[in-house]
Design a binder for these strands. Sequence first.
DNA 1: TAGCCAAGTTTTAACGATGTCGGGTTTAAG
DNA 2: CTTAAACCCGACATCGTTAAAACTTGGCTA
Lengths: 335, 335
Amino acid sequence: MVFRVTAFDVAQRAGVTQPTVSRALNGSPKVSDETRAKVLQAAQDLGYVINQNATRLRRGETMTLAVVLIGRAGESATETNPFYFSLLGSVAAAAAAKGYNLLVSFQGSPENFFGQYDDARQADGMIVIGTTQNPEAWAYFRGLDRPEKAWVCWGAPDDDLRWVRSENEGGGRIAARYLLEAGRKHPVFIGARASQQRQFGERYAGFAEELQKSDITPPAIDVDESLSREEQGVEAVRALLQSGQPFDAIFAACDLTALGVLRALSEAGISVPERVSVIGFDGIRAGNYSSPPLTTIEPDFEQAGDLLVQNVLNRIAGEPLTQRRVPVQLVKRGS
Amino acid sequence: MVFRVTAFDVAQRAGVTQPTVSRALNGSPKVSDETRAKVLQAAQDLGYVINQNATRLRRGETMTLAVVLIGRAGESATETNPFYFSLLGSVAAAAAAKGYNLLVSFQGSPENFFGQYDDARQADGMIVIGTTQNPEAWAYFRGLDRPEKAWVCWGAPDDDLRWVRSENEGGGRIAARYLLEAGRKHPVFIGARASQQRQFGERYAGFAEELQKSDITPPAIDVDESLSREEQGVEAVRALLQSGQPFDAIFAACDLTALGVLRALSEAGISVPERVSVIGFDGIRAGNYSSPPLTTIEPDFEQAGDLLVQNVLNRIAGEPLTQRRVPVQLVKRGS
DNA sequence: TAGCCAAGTTTTAACGATGTCGGGTTTAAG
DNA sequence: CTTAAACCCGACATCGTTAAAACTTGGCTA
């Protein structure tokens, strides 16, 4: 067994009692500068590191947030969407800035999440990030609006959940203006608009609203939500081609779908962006490597992380959610 | 404050003492079936969930592993390489299977990692995943081979660190055979072979060894390690073209580099795979979306996670590392 | 000089679990 | 019928910290 230095050891060396060490190190005002200096010196000499478990037991808080990543049924979130990695990185940065640790889970049934993290006091709050393509996972969080439960989610299939989301309508409008400026006359939306994915509906709404100003009513190809996002793009393009309706631009509900769209168009011999413009939503890295590189609407990842963390901290403090919309911007690439 | 049920409450309801509750729930043989049933019933009635912090303080172990993700200096690991997301997902699955929680960090100086996680008893062991392009971060782990420190890393710039790696030489040989079978006569290796990235050197070694059997000595384009992996591919192709040496196949040290290679070749008007075959290493998702889709050597991610976790558990138990090589396989796509 | 206040400490008591020890019951052996 | 060995379970100590209460000082007021 390895020898560990406790606050008691520090106290002995500094010639004070152990609680004084605690107060000195925690910056309590009720300790003289002289004593504090002695304690700090002793702590440094001995290489003292606080035992977080003792603090947590005593204080009843963990300074830890749990992040639960939900992929499609039977699939890890890593396979479902690389977007989540960016989001996770941003959440990690925001949590670290606030002094919080991050516990992540890619596994387990949602029913157990609270037992494992919240009830067992492993985390003070919980951030849920996942695909709406896993409705069973979300079912649990629906109606879990009890005040003592501190959680916030990204996206969310329902408006009444505690979500943080992109400025989807604004993003849709940006996409519309971009396509109009590129001289497109027949834009089409592809995405699971009618599904549980509220964000997609919002994206379409902004898109349609903006185009309406130019007297264009963009058709929307609703897709089969049981397919992967990418396959959705492929299938939608096939359906679109078969329908025979004219189109010269596609706004895909998300980047993975847009990549599927690019593939399907390429296979059909339709050149992008010459004959058809394609724009996605999310700003995933793979969009850089497609041919042509994917133009997209990208949320401000840093703010996304900040808002998720800030809002869950609000919940922990018993306060309501504050800002919940993440601004987006157009990233022009080649499509 | 929210009411929480403790083992003491359960004990009262079951009509036993609190330590008996502990024994009953932990499956101690020293408790009668009858008593155990009473305790279990009481626990269920009250919705008892154990307080992990108390257990951890008492037991001195946390059942938690820390994962530290290291990106390029000033960059989050999420930006550096999407490969890490797959690895993280696999580690999470393996840890969950062993009953371990996962604490992740994308931040902080390596000097603080042990203080934060190991010394403060927030984690029993540590898994370091990161790019060799951040030498300062690795410097700390060098020489940190003290037996009481339980850590394992992916990749690693030095052979004497506690690493887990892909079957790099085997992968190099597979790449070589693949290119030979495709009828290629002038294969080239692109990658920071001479850098601190040991894995790249191994990939080249296997590649060269296998080609040697056909009396081919593949040239290697060593690249500037200060560039991103992708830029390395771009620059290497430019250098290659400028040198005027003939080539009809490229084995890139990693997928991001391969994607850079594809881009540079495309810009130079060289068709893939007609004039030049390209093969990468890592199996990142973005390789699916390039044009053409990237052929690559992919490690078995599940095993990668298992081995990282297993080896760090070995370290925790004071045992040596066991299997450390992750098998790889060829993923044929279009390049 | 008694009385009081404030500052700085020590004392004491948790937080919620686990492990050791020992005694009381029951069962089996003598 | 006694006695020893299992077998259970309760009492108590403990992990390392923080918070509240009690207690010293010294300085200042009345």
